[in-house]
Design a protein around this nucleic acid. Structure first.
Lengths: 303, 303
DNA sequence: GCTCATGCCTTGGTTTTTCTAATGCGTATT
DNA sequence: AATACGCATTAGAAAAACCAAGGCATGAGC
């Protein structure tokens, strides 16, 4: 038995994701590639098979009948490959668990990471994640740390950086702040409340300039830690410009409400960072993959 | 269910072939790539899994225990992909059979192709192969021919060429020729028998020069058709320099015996040829793939 | 009804991966 | 000992995949 005529196998992986998510864009996000790449690969696959697998509707793509049948078979085949591969892997290592030390800032740990740790342990049984929570950038040369999550623009010499999530800023406050009054929606309304400003990034100042408003920040409450800023907002100290990723849990609980979105479109965001030499260590890339998948899931939920 | 950590899928295809053939080299030949590529891909796969899949012995490679288990699962998964894909394809086309016209020389048709045609029809049910048997190169612009098998160096402007098999020349004759006497093995012995020479390629002349012998060819029997040369040798007219591919059937039947190998290492051989525009026609590439797989099988048998 | 937002497609150019060609090494064979 | 055979390794070439940017069509919101 020989397989003379198999389809492009990598395209199948994209097809599976796209079919499962019913969206090329979501599949792309999950796979950490662009929607363009998914689109092209699926086009390749379709032209190889000689038939359409998706009906391109306007809102979402939908599997054709052939596509549905194909998806069933392909996902089962991939599943078989997946289980066989991980079995082969664990057979060898005989359940040897590797410990990976991850350095994270306190605010990110508290507001994003901790509530996902148990999920990580469930899904990635062969890696033990140890956290190193500090406010400063670790020196990989000195400290015994394998990887880190850092906020910045992704450029750290000698280090490899995978984008975890881009910054998306939102103005938030506690609903207790305005009480029975109407929720302030525009900058002039907001200006009548206390403002919480980050003295380093100066988001409010930039937002005011960008939208052409005047904003007096002389009385603003200043905190230089993005975690503290969120906490202060929850405590109804004022209206803060916060990273959506850090505020999302409090938003979901109703402790915060969103007043407006701001887009500063600088390349800032949270990155997963490790020395380039670690790129070959599977447990390191595995953690990175998992974190990014988790961020992708969050983005999906937020839509 | 999402597959966060699948192995490099294309490597699996190579792994499957290598495991089935128990040889990287044979797998490479079957897949029409180099042994080097197979070796590298399997190394990738092994380092992804973190364990050896093959034990590298001296004569052949052997699957490890883990490799054996893995092979079982992978080949089943690939088979599932294969059947699902061809089903999706035929569902669409609803069994429409395409006719492909292939132009071939009489000698190659007779000595190599005809005995494989029934196998082709068995294995490739959706393509109807029509032969156009001529001694001259067809003009794809004029004649209604989709593809051709040509002998040459693979350079035909505007045409795509896949190597089917390299020329490998052997000196052959009928065993009746030398009867009870010892089989002639060297050029001086051979020179005492009638020589059949190709007046175009002049293999005997080149062979004599290459090995530093004198050879009088004034009395040589001359035929300019490689098929006729083989027939003449079978009829005990003399000793001929023939293409191994054309003589192999007669050798297997005992109608011919091989006296010596000659390697001229010019890039001559049989090529599968079609207009570059046909590269996108799957039935064309399918025929090419099948022919080359068949040639690969023959090479395997001859070892 | 018009604008805006969303999601997929297309294209050109760049980056990354894959493949080849050449060579080396170790073992079995003659 | 010499040769042949099969796999490994390397640098560089070839091919494939990918991204960024822009386009188009549809549906929602004002």
């Amino acid at each position: 038995m020989s397989f003379a005529d198999l389809p492009p196998l990598n395209a199948l992986r994209y097809f599976e994701a796209a079919a499962r998510r019913r969206s090329f864009t979501l599949a792309a996000d999950e796979l950490h590639i662009t929607q363009s790449a998914v689109s092209q690969q699926i086009r390749n696959l379709e032209s190889f098979i000689g038939t359409a697998l998706f009906k391109r509707g306007t809102a979402t793509v939908v599997l054709t009948d052939i596509g549905k049948t194909y998806f069933e078979a392909i996902s089962k085949a991939l599943e078989r490959i997946d289980t066989a591969t991980s079995k082969a892997r664990t057979t060898q290592r005989s359940k040897r668990i590797e410990q990976i030390c991850l350095s994270v800032s306190p605010s990110f740990t508290h507001l994003w990471l901790v509530k996902r740790l148990s999920k990580f342990h469930q899904e990635v049984k062969d890696i033990q994640l140890a956290l190193n929570v500090t406010r400063h950038y670790v020196d990989f040369e000195v400290e015994n740390v394998d990887m880190a999550i850092r906020h910045g623009d992704g450029e750290w010499p000698g280090l490899h950086a995978d984008l975890l999530m881009k910054d998306h800023m939102i103005a938030v406050c506690s609903p207790r702040l305005f009480q029975a009054r109407a929720m302030p929606k525009s900058l002039p309304e907001i200006a009548s409340y206390p403002i919480i400003e980050d003295p380093v990034y100066r988001y409010w100042a930039r937002y005011a300039r960008q939208t052409g408003h005047q904003l007096d920040l002389t009385d603003a409450i200043q905190y230089d830690d993005s975690g503290v800023i969120v906490e202060a907002a929850i405590n109804a100290q004022g209206i803060a410009m916060a990273r959506a990723s850090l505020a999302s849990a409090a938003l979901a609980r109703g402790q915060l409400v969103k007043l407006l979105d701001a887009d500063f479109s600088d390349a800032l965001g949270y990155y997963i960072v490790f020395p380039s030499a670690h790129k070959v260590r599977r447990s390191v890339t595995r953690v990175s993959k998992w974190l990014r998948l988790e961020a992708s899931r969050e983005r999906t939920e937020l839509r």
